[in-house]
Structures are given as structure tokens and as C-alpha cells.
């Protein structure tokens, strides 16, 4: 006894013919109709058999295709994760989600631009072995990129020892929040650089890197620049040059920002006004502000009292006041209180 997938159907046909041959249907007309029905059933059964076979073959091909697609997908995933390392995560996301346009188009947007480099990089690294330089640069860029990604910066490019980043494209939280995120990022970077300097020094590097940062807020052209075959998603404009110029004027380990950025962050930062500078391509005189302190977490800072509203500005930093200054401040506030009451 062997297995037949269509045993039932075959046996129906067989029984039908046996019945016919045995003269089981006496009426001639009925026998003729039964014969017709039987041959139609046979035909239908043949078609079903063929269809099952065909369907099996198609499914087999589809399964093979699905397997190939799986492999291709895995390969693409691997490639894209490698490619991601060459792009800013925001740009990568917008390309892979299909939102990014790869034509040579740009937009004007108000961005906060960050520019930094290492002071005296060429001289510092002149006597260094290439392996040491590679180690220093890689650890510097890895640490700084990690902080940049934490704050949502779009890393535009690394130019030798310099870094160009911006806030406000492709994602923005508004001009003010973008500027604040940039400032927080810059401060954390300088704090981390101060830790790294100690680590590098311990490792035997006599002149560890010192970073200077320039920040500016203004309208830039952002988008695809280059040729149809090879393009860069980047920013250009006088405001970008200004960030670079501010960086060049910043103190080693310091942050220098333009008035435009300062106006967005002034309630959370303590600054020192510097001498105005002129930048090619920018008609106005640029007033730089060097960051000296940040008063961000006001509620947790018991030494700082700050209140800003129209007609009333108060900034009190108890840490910076001498005993005599405190007395003077008390007198000023008491006088102010009396005048307010009257």
C-alpha cells in the first residue's frame, strides 16, 4: 500500500467508471449524463493537481526570493551601519527615512554654529610620533563627538583638528533652545577637555591639547553643496565664518560667542564682554562675549539669585561678593525695598 496525496479523488473516479462498466445506471440518458459529469470531474481533478504542483513551485521560488532578500537586507544593514559613521546621525536618519532630498538645493535657516580647534596644533604635534598623534586625535574626536550627539548637534565635519557643528537643522527646538543646547555642549566639552588634559599628561604627553570654541547664531545657507555626483550636506555663509573667527579669538580652554548667541542665553550664563571685532563678509561690528560661568540649574544653585522682567533685573552671585560688597548690596536692596513700598 502506497501513499497517494489524491487517493480520495482517484478512488471516486475509479468507482465511477466501475459503475458505468458494470451497467449500474440502467437508464441510457442518465448513464450518458453521468459519463459527462465523471469526465468533467476528472478534468477538474487534473486541473487541481496541476494547480497544487504549480502553487508549490511558485511558493518554493518565493521562499528562495525571500531568503535572498533577507541576505540582501542584512548586507544593506551592515553597509548602512558602516556608512552611518561617515554621516551625522540626523542626516543619516533623514536620508534613510526618505525625507532627505539629494538634489543640490539649500535653505536659509537661523542656526547656531559651533566652531572649535586645538590651539597651536601644528607646533604641539610637530615632534609627536604619528601613532601618538593618531591616539590623541582619535580620543579627542571620539569624546567630543559623544558629547555633541548627546546634545543633538549636527556634526558637519572634522577639518584636521577643527570641528564644525550646528544646531537648528535638520531638527530644531527653536532658535533659543538650539543656542542653549550649543552652549551646554560647549561647556561640557571644555570640562571634558580639562579631564582629558590630565589623563594625556599622565600618559606622558608634555603639551596636551587645548581647545578654543567660537559660537555664533545667525542665518546660514544649509543644504547640499557640491556636484550632482559628490555632495556635502553643510552650511555656508558669513555667519559660519564669524563662528570660526570667534574661535580664533577665544582663550585656550575658553568659549567666545557673538552677541546674537549671547542674547539667546544671557539669562543662564555669566560672560565677559571682549573688544569688538570685524569680520570679512559681516558689515556690523561683532561684540564677542567670553563665557565665564553658567547659571543654568537655578533652583539647585543656592548662591545665585536671578530675576528678569521688564523694569526689574536682578542678578546676585553670593560667591563673588566680598564682605564689604555684601554690605553694599544689602544697602542697595534695602533702599530699593523702601522705594518700592512708598
Amino acid at each position: 500500500m502506497s501513499f497517494d496525496l489524491f487517493k480520495k479523488e482517484n478512488s471516486i473516479i475509479e468507482n465511477g467508471y466501475t459503475l458505468l462498466e458494470a451497467g449500474g445506471i440502467v437508464d441510457e440518458e442518465s448513464a450518458k449524463e453521468f459519463k459527462k459529469l465523471l469526465s468533467a470531474y476528472k478534468k477538474l481533478f487534473k486541473s487541481t493537481r496541476r494547480l497544487v504542483k504549480m502553487s508549490d513551485r511558485n511558493e518554493e521560488k518565493l521562499n528562495a526570493l525571500a531568503g535572498t532578500l533577507d541576505e540582501k537586507n542584512k548586507m544593506l544593514e551592515g553597509l548602512s551601519s558602516k556608512l552611518a559613521k561617515y554621516l551625522s546621525p540626523q542626516i543619516y536618519q533623514s536620508i534613510f527615512s526618505g525625507a532627505h532630498d539629494t538634489s543640490l538645493t539649500t535653505q536659509r535657516k537661523k542656526l547656531t554654529v559651533y566652531f572649535s580647534d586645538i590651539k597651536d596644533f601644528t607646533q604641539t604635534t610637530e615632534d609627536m610620533q604619528p601613532e601618538d598623534l593618531t591616539y590623541l586625535l582619535n580620543s579627542y574626536f571620539t569624546e567630543m563627538s559623544g558629547i555633541a550627539l548627546k546634545y543633538g548637534a549636527t556634526i558637519d565635519k572634522f577639518i584636521g583638528d577643527a570641528m564644525l557643528m550646528f544646531f537648528g537643522d535638520p531638527e530644531t527646538k527653536g532658535v533659543k533652545e538650539d543656542a542653549r543646547a550649543c552652549l551646554h555642549m560647549a561647556i561640557e566639552m571644555q570640562q571634558r577637555m580639562s579631564d582629558l588634559k590630565k589623563i594625556w599628561h599622565r600618559k606622558g604627553f608634555e603639551h596636551p591639547f587645548e581647545m578654543r570654541i567660537g559660537i555664533n547664531t545667525g542665518y546660514c545657507n544649509v543644504g547640499n553643496f557640491g556636484s550632482e555626483d559628490r555632495m556635502d550636506y553643510t552650511i555656508i555663509g558669513g555667519e559660519v565664518n564669524l563662528a570660526a573667527r570667534l574661535e580664533a579669538s577665544a582663550d585656550p580652554g575658553g568659549i567666545l560667542m557673538s552677541y546674537e548667541t549671547y542674547s539667546q542665553v544671557k539669562d543662564i550664563v555669566e560672560t565677559e564682554a571682549r573688544k569688538p571685532i570685524h569680520v570679512k563678509g559681516i558689515r556690523r561690528e561683532v561684540k564677542p562675549y567670553a563665557v565665564t560661568n553658567i547659571y543654568d540649574d537655578m533652583e539647585n544653585n543656592q548662591h545665585v539669585i536671578r530675576h528678569d522682567r521688564v523694569g526689574f533685573n536682578l542678578f546676585l552671585n553670593l560667591d563673588k561678593l566680598t564682605a564689604e560688597d555684601r554690605k553694599k548690596a544689602q544697602k542697595t536692596l534695602t533702599d530699593a525695598m523702601e522705594r518700592l513700598k512708598s
Binding site: L5, F6, K7, K8, L51, V52, K53, D56, E59, E60
Partner: peptide, 14 residues
């Protein structure tokens, strides 16, 4: 399951 297996299942159900 593919079409032939579906036929097997139908036989089983029968």
C-alpha cells in the same frame, strides 16, 4: 505550509 501540505491537512481532516 505549502499547497501540497494543505492537501495533506485536508486529507487528515477528512
Amino acid at each position: 505550509f505549502n499547497s501540497s501540505s494543505a492537501k495533506v491537512l485536508m486529507s487528515l481532516f477528512d
